[in-house]
């Protein structure tokens, strides 16, 4: 019994491995977020057959991918092709990272009143007795002078 998969036709055809190399960069047009090389639906198998034929005809992998993107849209590849959306994809997280870094740096600069607070609001972690608390308090006062 022949299970559903693409039969290697005789003649000029790219090897399965080459097809996978292209298919794993693409995504199934029907089921979202499933890479083309994993998808075993009839549509996806037809597509892989077409990829094999195009590769055999001498087209480069990028050309093959571009031809599918032109017909079906950006969502069949893992990186958005539309320039605006691609910019948004990469620039925004980079910007957000910079913002987070900025927030980190801001954290360093909040000195205001923290010295005063450390005197009165020293958090006792539970292991210190009264005596050592006093000790720490005195050393803090000393360090202020």
């Amino acid at each position: 019994m022949l299970l559903p998969f693409v039969i290697t036709a005789q003649g000029n055809r790219a090897s399965d491995t080459e097809v996978i190399a292209v298919a794993e960069r693409m995504y199934c047009p029907v089921c979202e977020n499933i890479p083309l090389d994993e998808c075993q639906t009839t549509a996806c198998l037809e597509w892989k057959d077409e990829i094999a034929a195009q590769l055999a005809a001498g087209r480069t992998p990028q050309d093959v991918i571009d031809s599918f993107v032109a017909r079906f849209g950006d969502h069949v590849v893992g990186v958005p092709q539309d320039p605006l959306i691609r910019a948004l994809t990469f620039v925004l997280p980079a910007l957000a990272t910079l913002l987070a870094l900025g927030a980190g740096l801001l954290t360093f600069r909040r000195f205001a009143d923290s010295k005063k607070l450390s005197l009165e609001r020293e958090t006792v972690s539970g292991e210190l007795s009264d005596a050592s608390y006093r000790e720490r308090l005195e050393s803090d006062v000393r360090s202020l002078r």
Partner: peptide, 27 residues
């Protein structure tokens, strides 16, 4: 932020604002 943007933020925004479906893949 990067992973949230790629999984949810950008795809949803792209569909709502531009009407374009995108797939953010492993690469």
């Amino acid at each position: 932020i990067a992973i949230f943007w790629g999984s949810f933020g950008l795809p949803i925004l792209s569909e709502l604002a531009f009407g374009k479906e995108v797939t953010i893949g492993a690469e």
